[in-house]
Design a protein around this nucleic acid. Sequence first.
DNA 1: CTGAAAGCGCTTACAG
DNA 2: CTGAAAGCGCTTACAG
Lengths: 348, 348
Amino acid sequence: MKKAPRIVTIEDVAREAGVGLGTVSRVLNHQAHVSHSTQNRVLASIRRLKFVPHSHARRMGRRRAEMVCFILSNREFLHPFHARIFQGVERCAREWKHHVVFVGVQYDRDARPSQIPLPAILQERGSIDGLILAGMIYGNFIRRMESLGIPFVAFGNNVLGLGRRHEFDEVLYDARVGVQDAIEHLYSLGHRSIAYVGDISFPWFQEEYDAYIDITQTKNLRTLAVTSLQSGDEVKYGEWAASVVLREKPLPTAVFAGNDQIAYGLWRLFKRRGVRIPNDMSLVGFDDTEEALLIDPPLTTVRVDKEKIGYLCIQTLLERLSRPGRSPRRVVLPTKLVIRETVSSISH
Amino acid sequence: MKKAPRIVTIEDVAREAGVGLGTVSRVLNHQAHVSHSTQNRVLASIRRLKFVPHSHARRMGRRRAEMVCFILSNREFLHPFHARIFQGVERCAREWKHHVVFVGVQYDRDARPSQIPLPAILQERGSIDGLILAGMIYGNFIRRMESLGIPFVAFGNNVLGLGRRHEFDEVLYDARVGVQDAIEHLYSLGHRSIAYVGDISFPWFQEEYDAYIDITQTKNLRTLAVTSLQSGDEVKYGEWAASVVLREKPLPTAVFAGNDQIAYGLWRLFKRRGVRIPNDMSLVGFDDTEEALLIDPPLTTVRVDKEKIGYLCIQTLLERLSRPGRSPRRVVLPTKLVIRETVSSISH
DNA sequence: CTGAAAGCGCTTACAG
DNA sequence: CTGAAAGCGCTTACAG
């Protein structure tokens, strides 16, 4: 006869169903080894009592929070590329009955690891099982995360300045092959003068650029790259780069943009200057984001499956959680050339 | 000699410091009744062992999650007004060592309560202590929230179609007084023909409108309101309303906009049409958001302290949590007329 | 297949 | 002021 509507526990259910605590717990967790009839009895009691398990108690018992944290460092949340990755993370996590909390952090790439501020949720123990790192991941940040003793997986293309071999799990897309495919495609259509546009102070563009240089030299093509450092808006950067390209003599026959936003900027300026795409100039992008379809005609680009990256991040992380001793894994997602209408063939 | 680096618990600290468990717990929670010397001893052990309390265990013991949920229903997150409220919530919550999780929900205002979907975090028990409701809060949504058995507080100006008396805690600003202040101000400067602009299908504008009608009739002023239903962009709505106002004969001497976005739209069109502000037309807004300073000259407007609303929401909620039996509270925040430069005096 | 028991890491009366 | 104990609501070996 208490006033407070006492919370209904697993014990109430057990009593109602005439079974032991353990049995209720087993059906709750969809474990095997419960006979059909008892299972039904328990399920009925659960429904009758409107029982809902208490999350903290379960987490305590399991020694798992079933919660992971997506950490985006030194970046805007709204960047569509990462937003898509996050979506993939969220969806996959839900399938595995995990929550994901998003936190943004800003840090100084020159700070000592211990000086990097930690979001509140990471300052307590037990709230977060694992981390997904994206944004700008420098070495000091990695070390800071390691100091937490929480397993993590990194979005590999965002890992900066650590060389190629890493001691941690990562999932990444293969920029090199993407570039190769794009250039091969242009080459097969007769293009011999292909410009590259991307600000190589960012490592993701640097990687593309390296691949561009390799293949361009292997094939003995003209090399022409607009790579200058240009912080800020990528569309504007594309516009500016387009004007640079247009001053070249002879004019290249194609431009390969480091990402679709840049491609969009190139397209805008070309259009304004009366350069017809693809008749006068072929154009290829990278990422396959929304911009690819804003361009008219639609943009040929290298697709990166962003949601899949998120998906693989969660999977890799969950595997790591169940096998802490496993050696570091590097999951590489292939890219895919999506041929649309901004590339035409050249007749020699 | 276990491999896994066993988690350090309160028990380890107690042993190290040579005290009981309870004592460690007490210093952890900054409770009184611990002598200075033991306290220091415990603190030293904590530091030496790098002890961090386990969040779920603490929450279990306390029977409190120390986590509240900000629910924005049927709205865009990025609406700057609510974003500011959220900021206030977050900041105040942090002061009280609480986490706040943000969730957006979309629901049908005609749905039965039981049909309204619940975010995952509310589908488990014990994760959330209390709710803060904002957005579009219809009766069915309130009932859905009540069915959860979790205390909540609502942002009262967003409560729709439930009359004036409510059975739950709410925090709101006093739109009526804000309108009165604005009209009085215009009146004192000689204005006798003041138009009101706001889409009264939204209750927050309806409330302003009612106040406008009351005061305008009390003072025997001309009544002229552009209130037509107009979904979508509020700046555009303001532009359209400006063109309506300009067709009036005689022209009103002032326009009172339902919010600053609308005022911004009015201002834009007035400017385009060569109507000088405040010489030819005075203009007053509501909310005091960023727009107020984008207008040139800066906008006279009614300030609503959005962060404070968030602040009061948390405080009210926390009070409710500690005194569940308390009768519903209605916290009203006053508004403040901010006089800038868009109002001039009229000489008769 | 199933029950009784121990354990998770805290907090909070209850005695001293 | 402080310690020993009970309790929070689950899970998970351990025996049957």
